[in-house]
Amino acid sequence: MFKKTMLCAAAVTLTLLTGCASVPMESAEKDQALKSFTAPASDKAGIYIFRDSSLGPALKKTVKIDGETIGETATHTYFYRLVNPGRHVLATESEFGDNTLELVTQGGHNYYVRQSIKLGVFVGGAKLTLVPEAEGKQGVRDSKLAQ
């Protein structure tokens, strides 16, 4: 019985990880403008949250900043949000609850956070990682702006 349950769970996971999910997208003009990576004003910080991996194309994962949902990601998508400088909690939907990342921002700076998909027991999970600027810019360039 346990073997059958695990095989069924594996089949469901494989199905979810190989389909294609789509999310509402912003205009190409807005996408290109944000890829100039202009520093925000000194009283704001910019956060790019991107998902540049092809793993889990059937999975859409919710992203939150300070408890407010900003949208769902699909493969090769990103979000950009301006926030007040200070402490922020970013969260992404995972298999058994949200995975979080605490980020302390300074005004006038952009921050780059990668959302990674990881295999789970029943469905794929997700995690957030702060990455260096050069790596983050490349991840955003390889992605498109989601609404």
Rank of each mutant, 00 (worst) to 15 (best):
E95Y: 08
G108K: 10
L130M: 09
I49R: 04
A134Q: 15
L119S: 12
A9R: 13
K35R: 11
A11S: 15
L145S: 11
L17W: 09
A91T: 03
P57C: 10
I70R: 05
L16I: 12
V131T: 08
S116K: 09
I47Q: 01
G107W: 02
I47H: 00
Q32C: 07
T75L: 06
L55K: 11
E72S: 12
A41F: 00
K127P: 00
F2M: 11
T18W: 13
Y80P: 02
Q106G: 03
L145C: 13
E29D: 15
G67H: 04
V89M: 08
D52P: 04
Y112E: 03
K35M: 08
D66V: 07
T129P: 04
S22K: 15
R141W: 10
I65N: 02
S143K: 13
T105L: 04
L7R: 15
F96K: 13
L17C: 14
T75Q: 13
G71R: 08
Q115H: 07
M25E: 08
A11H: 06
T92W: 03
D43R: 11
L7H: 12
P132C: 06
E68D: 07
H88I: 06
H109D: 04
I49L: 06
V123N: 09
F50A: 10
V140S: 07
L59Q: 08
F122G: 11
T129N: 09
K127N: 12
E68A: 14
G19M: 15
A33H: 12
Q138N: 15
A21S: 14
G86S: 05
Q115Y: 01
P85A: 05
A126L: 06
I49A: 02
V104K: 12
E72V: 06
T73P: 00
V23N: 08
L59E: 05
K35Q: 10
L7I: 07
E95R: 13
D66P: 05
T77D: 03
Q32R: 15
T73L: 11
A134Y: 05
E133C: 09
K64R: 12
S143A: 15
G71F: 04
A21W: 07
R141Q: 15
R51K: 09
G71A: 06
G139S: 10
E93Q: 14
G136P: 07
L130S: 06
A10V: 11
I117R: 01
T77G: 04
A39H: 03
Y111P: 01
F37P: 02
T92A: 07
E135V: 04
R114W: 00
I49H: 01
L55P: 00
